[in-house]
Design a binder for these strands. Sequence first.
DNA 1: ATTGCAATGAGATATCAGTCTCATTAAGAC
DNA 2: GTCTTAATGAGACTGATATCTCATTGCAAT
Lengths: 200, 200
Amino acid sequence: MAKADGTGRWRQRRRTRKDLLQAAARLLRLGRQPSLEEVADEALVSRATAYRYFPSASALLVEAAVDLAVPDAAALFPPDATQDPAARAQLVDSALHDMILENEVTLRLMLANSLQQRAKGDGDLPVRQGRRIPLIEAALAPAADQFAPADLRLLQAALALIIGPEAMVVCKDVLQLDDAETRRVKRWAIGAMVAAARRS
Amino acid sequence: MAKADGTGRWRQRRRTRKDLLQAAARLLRLGRQPSLEEVADEALVSRATAYRYFPSASALLVEAAVDLAVPDAAALFPPDATQDPAARAQLVDSALHDMILENEVTLRLMLANSLQQRAKGDGDLPVRQGRRIPLIEAALAPAADQFAPADLRLLQAALALIIGPEAMVVCKDVLQLDDAETRRVKRWAIGAMVAAARRS
DNA sequence: ATTGCAATGAGATATCAGTCTCATTAAGAC
DNA sequence: GTCTTAATGAGACTGATATCTCATTGCAAT
């Protein structure tokens, strides 16, 4: 199977690759951890072919997980929304929290797969595309002038630690908090950090 | 196999479990990546029994690899250490950060295993024992009277989101920060949250 | 010492990963 | 249209994971 781009039958190859990723994403959305054979069947492709495109089953799953649906920044912040950065950040967290709860199994699996891959040293696999980052930026944008640029960067990074599946995992698995308590903790942390960034 | 502690034949069970972990560690030290069957043989135990003690082969191997020198609260805070809760929390984070860097691969696999297990619905079996929680409590203990009890609980939980492998994963994989920047972000977040708890 | 039962052993069985080989199909160059 | 051959399909094969059943052992309560 030639690797060259734009030559030979690259259209056919792109189509097969796309079919595999879409099939994997479809199965992941059902909360399953599909075997490579299941993915291949779902994609109407033979097992051997799947292995021709991805070195391992988990590599396929990780890459598939990258294109899963997420809330949209524009929908979350209509023009008449609050300008208060803390309230906006908490709104982002709340929306993402809901989304994570709905897709908890799927997100845990994709996180687990990603961790497994990176633990093996595959450094060049797809970056875990920060879906949270544009949302956080959108939350802080209208108040950007209230912060020193350096503080804004720190705040964005720190918020990314609180807003996302990883924090949810810590709350539920390590701290063993229920959902209400989890929301309260994150809400408080977000308020604390925005206030701190404002003050300096 | 009863799960109760301290009753029935818990001595026998502890011995079997220890044998399995020691056998795994022995094989790992030889640079091998032993299968569960090899570990069971080395431990003079049947395969079925090994599965009675560990949910999966990798769970066994990972746990065997965790002879991590987890920093000890007493060693971290000698009597003449600072009393400032922010400084102490940052010290905990720094120590844990170093430990995590040294055992990054193992910890990633541990996290991945835990996520995979819980995604499958085995939510009740191995609770992720929070090694970070006693450290955080020790950091805040001398200043406990500076916070309202409710705030103290919020602060402890929020700090657990920043201090630990999950936050490290977010910084490196999602935000793609280098090590220095990662430390800076966490340090800033810890300071922000302790200050917020103090103020109310 | 006897005995109940927890713990274990010894398989059988099913599934999956990953690698090969070889035949078949169809895309694209001519 | 026809050819070439890249892409694919079908299946064998090895070794590992994981679950299950049933017989056996031996710890510990009596």
